[in-house]
Amino acid sequence: MVASVRRVFELWGLYARLDMLYVLRGPQIALSFYVSDLILGMAAVTAMFLLAQRFDGIPPWSRDQMLFLLGYALLVRGTIDVFFNYNISFISRRIGRGQLDHVLVQPQPLWMVLLTEGFAPVTGAGMLLPGLLLIGWSVEQLQLSVTFAWLALLALSLACSIVVVLAFSYAWGSLAFWAPRSAEELNSSTWQLLTQLDVFPLDPLPTLALTGLLTFVPAGLVAWYPARALLGIDASPLGWLGLPAAALVLGSLCLFIFMRGLAHYGRTGSTRYLSYGHRR
């Protein structure tokens, strides 16, 4: 266990160096990365931000609570970009392009490759900073007391939100094991689906729609649900424990589907191979 953890950190160090090398090839590249990521991040939340600003919040959420929700959503995306870059979060591309072979010829457990190979702390950090700034600013405006317990809840919620996004992505992306060509870009759609919906406050929705957005398309679990607990809107035990429980269920379901797909891959192999960009 200790050896595995040490190994994960060693590999993160390696991929961080590679990522740094990539950016240091030229200041223009670095600048273009950050500017484009910043624009993307801002574009993703601007509509909701302007609505919240214009109407002083979206009831029952105040403007500052909305900013916290947007910041949290950006933080989730930013963290995924940092840790699961290089099409690790868009696994349908790797599977569909026959590039999983590159992972399987490495002498490491598959989980370790998937956990480490996408680490891009420099090029992937574009959305992290605006997310942290929005959270910090809204926390100050809301005068939340930032205790150790609150920070721990934030970290736990963040980890669970990431598990939910990745589980959704991997569960659908695993279809590429069976249909490599048709499902290759499936994760672009699943990602778009979640990121378009995760910035909405879902309180006014009818129960049926809300249930759907907390289960089949778990966009509500990405930011809205944890933000309610972190802001004290839902202080019930379900508010605190619902997300970890959902992450566990979705993670297990995803693992089941992915392993089935992997077994199929072992039987049939990949019928196609696209060489471009298997490492960016």
């Binding site: 090398l21 990539y22 072979d101 060489s275 490492r279």
Partner: peptide
């Protein structure tokens, strides 16, 4: 080790020596 003629294990956007260093660490 395996080499497929139509595939590359090299990191596409990195210098070859960076790929070699990657190999050293990953293969320990």
């Amino acid at each position: 080790s395996v080499v497929f003629g139509q595939r590359t294990e090299l990191w596409w956007d990195h210098a070859v020596e960076a790929s070699f260093e990657w190999k050293r660490v990953v293969w320990d």
